[in-house]
């Protein structure tokens, strides 16, 4: 960790101002000289590891009063960016009407982390790629653009099989983002020129040739809220992992269905643990829509999700695993009692 200055935000305008002070030096955003601090469970870790080296920290926790609401309104669910993972996971309305959200949060990290961590910080958590997190490895295009990728032919069991590029195969590690992308959430962004909205699906950027650019956020922009349209009581989050708790997904699936008389009217599927960004499986959804559910369909739909998957030395198993997880999650969603 390197020395940094610390400022507490007094209001959103001031926070945005402080974060965009040195705009020229703020590219890419992940290497910006000023970083917002929410729960700190990603940011402080990465600073201790010397991976992130901000010169200034702007603590946005004082904005919690306006930015941590959990509002299951009539049509839309509104979640403030500073709401804690644990509070959202424990919220009764969310457990009832959006089990996929509650479970994606409940199955993430540990109780202590969930008590600290915020929704905004959660979706912006960074990859767990061991080579990225250890600065003694020079070859990491994400951390050190143009230096190569140590994981490509290294130890890559945890790495992605979808959305990879020749530059980076790092997995997007979070769980909650899968629920958001599946449910067509929008994200509310507060910046210098006020508040804008964009589809959550546009927040994260696949690595391509610039793995150092992870999101479409601009310097000085903060996530203030997430908005989820509709209700999804028939939804599940299934997470396969090496141990029973407190562990990232090897493969996960967020599934939300609208089933009437055995026919799938709408299906929303997103995959975690296998892709470089929160991953919507639209091919799978297309196969399911308008059809009667059976095991064969589940299998075909799951296969479709991984049609373009590319495995490497240690992570090829994720393709077969991912398919089984999708099929299993579909079954659970279809048979769940609501």
């Amino acid at each position: 960790m390197r020395s940094f200055s610390y400022q507490r935000a007094t209001d959103p305008g001031m926070a945005v101002q402080a974060l965009s002070a040195d705009a020229a030096a703020n590219n890419p955003l992940t290497q910006a000289t000023a970083q917002p601090l929410a729960g700190g469970t990603t940011l402080i870790d990465l600073m201790k590891l010397d991976v992130m080296r901000p010169a200034a920290i702007v603590d946005i926790n004082p904005l919690a009063q306006g930015w941590s609401a959990i509002e299951p309104g009539s049509g839309n669910l509104w979640l403030g960016a500073l709401a804690k993972m644990s509070d959202v996971a424990a919220h009764e309305d969310i457990q009832r009407n959006y089990p996929v959200i509650a479970d994606s949060l409940k199955l993430a990290a540990s109780a202590q982390l969930r008590n600290m961590a915020t929704l905004g910080g959660n979706v912006l958590q960074r990859t767990r790629c061991s080579y990225f997190r250890d600065v003694s490895y020079e070859n990491c295009n994400k951390r050190n653009p143009g230096s190569g990728c140590a994981a490509m032919d290294g130890v890559n069991r945890m790495h992605a099989v979808l959305g990879t590029s020749e530059q980076c195969i790092a997995t997007y590690p979070g769980d909650f983002a899968q629920a958001l992308i599946a449910l067509d959430a929008t994200v509310e962004v507060t910046g210098r020129s006020g508040t804008r909205s964009m589809p959550f699906a546009e927040l994260h950027k696949p690595p391509g040739n610039t793995p150092e650019i992870e999101t479409s956020l601009q310097p000085g922009e903060l996530i203030s809220a997430f908005v989820i349209p509709g209700r999804w009581p028939r939804s599940v989050y299934l997470k396969a992992r090496d141990r029973q708790s407190y562990e990232f997904a090897l493969s996960s699936a967020a599934v939300a269905l609208d089933v009437q008389d055995g026919t799938i009217r709408d299906a929303r599927i997103a995959l975690g643990g296998v892709a470089t960004v929160p991953w919507r499986a639209r091919e799978t959804e297309a196969l399911l829509k308008g059809r009667k559910f059976d095991d064969g369909l589940a299998q075909r739909a799951a296969d479709a999700a991984f049609a373009d998957a590319k495995g490497r030395r240690h992570n090829s198993f994720k393709i077969a695993l991912g398919k089984r997880v999708v099929a299993h999650a579909l079954q659970q969603a279809v048979t769940m009692e609501i």
Partner: peptide, 21 residues
Amino acid sequence: DERTARYVNDNFADYLVPVNA
């Protein structure tokens, strides 16, 4: 890492030990 003879998962997030569950 066979190429470098370095330990890769040298931390408690990646070197797994059981939790109570």
